[in-house]
């Protein structure tokens, strides 16, 4: 049973305008070789995001966060349910949907021998941008993220992990996505880089009106950035509310401290220490 303090809106036009994202009863199973029954990675998950919202998804490793992100951006197919982005069905209008979204994942995946400019030029062309304006925009975004034009011409392999992640964010922003999917974008970054990225996410919403889905293990980050948060556990959405709403919920209903940590532990049934002991996300079979 999902605990919810905000209205459950699953129709695209439930409040009279097109939602940025509608996930409607999404189901995804994986067959794992040594198990007879399929593993339920996403189990009847629904959510609705309004334009300009930052929506956080929390959960333990293997809870289904990354799988949900992959389903939303079409890298996995749904077994049941549907996904709509700005009123466009993900399956029927795949190319239209792809133009509206972009994603930053925990690993900054690039052609490491190529420079940020070369990598981003490739991304820009894939999204139909002209080379000249794309180059100017790339340099501008990189500069905003603290990467000079001189560094932008050197191979990415010579950059630190934090710098690479900033380039990954720049790649996503270059295509001006209406919906940005951030899958643990600050994991593994030093505190300064983390703050830089968080400030940039806030700026994105304020200045560009982007709608953002953010998965993170950093509860302080979720508290700072997110308008609403849902917690996934074993592929199911177990609660959804505002950060303050979640804190009040665990305090009032479960007599726990009014913190996101308490909410996380209550709804995932495990401690944060347990979670950190796991070294890698295992929500999809390899």
């Amino acid at each position: 049973m999902t605990a919810t303090l905000s209205p459950q809106l699953n129709d695209t036009t439930a409040i009279g305008r097109v939602a940025a994202l509608v996930v409607d009863h999404a189901v995804k199973r994986f067959n794992v070789a040594d198990k007879r029954r399929p593993v339920m990675a996403i189990d009847d998950v629904s959510m609705r995001l309004e334009r300009g919202e930052i929506y956080g998804i929390l959960g333990s490793n293997g809870s289904g966060k990354s799988t949900l992100i992959r389903l939303i951006c079409g890298l996995l197919t749904l077994d049941a349910g549907r996904v709509e982005i700005f009123g466009h069905d993900l399956v029927r209008e795949e190319l239209t949907v792809k133009r509206l979204i972009n994603r930053v994942s925990v690993d900054a995946a690039f052609f490491k021998k190529l420079s940020p400019l070369e990598n981003l030029s490739f991304a820009a062309r894939l999204y139909g941008l002209e080379a000249g304006p794309a180059r100017s925009a790339t340099l501008e975004i990189l500069a905003r993220l603290g990467i000079s034009a001189r560094r932008a011409d050197r191979p990415i392999e010579q950059m630190s992990r934090g710098m690479q992640q900033k380039v990954a964010i720049a790649r996503a922003l270059l295509t001006s996505p209406s919906l940005l999917l951030l899958d643990e974008p600050t994991t593994g970054l030093d505190p300064r880089s983390k703050l830089d990225v968080q400030a940039f996410i806030e700026e994105l919403r304020v200045e560009h009106g982007a709608t953002i889905v953010l998965t993170t293990h950093d509860l302080a980050e979720a508290d700072r950035l997110c308008d609403r948060i849902s917690i996934l556990n074993d592929g199911r959405k177990v609660v959804e509310s505002t950060p303050i709403g979640l804190k009040l919920l665990v305090a009032e209903r479960y007599d726990q401290p009014a913190t996101l940590e308490a909410a996380f532990m209550t709804y995932t049934g495990r401690s944060l220490d347990d979670d950190h002991e796991e070294t890698e996300e295992t929500d999809e079979p390899n």
């Binding site: 190319l95 239209t96 792809k98 979204i101 994942s105 690039f110 991304a123």
Partner: peptide, 18 residues
Amino acid sequence: AVERWEGTLEYTMMAPIR
């Protein structure tokens, strides 16, 4: 194979191209 090796395959597959 190169995209798989570099980890960029998902990004290319996500792009709005045929």
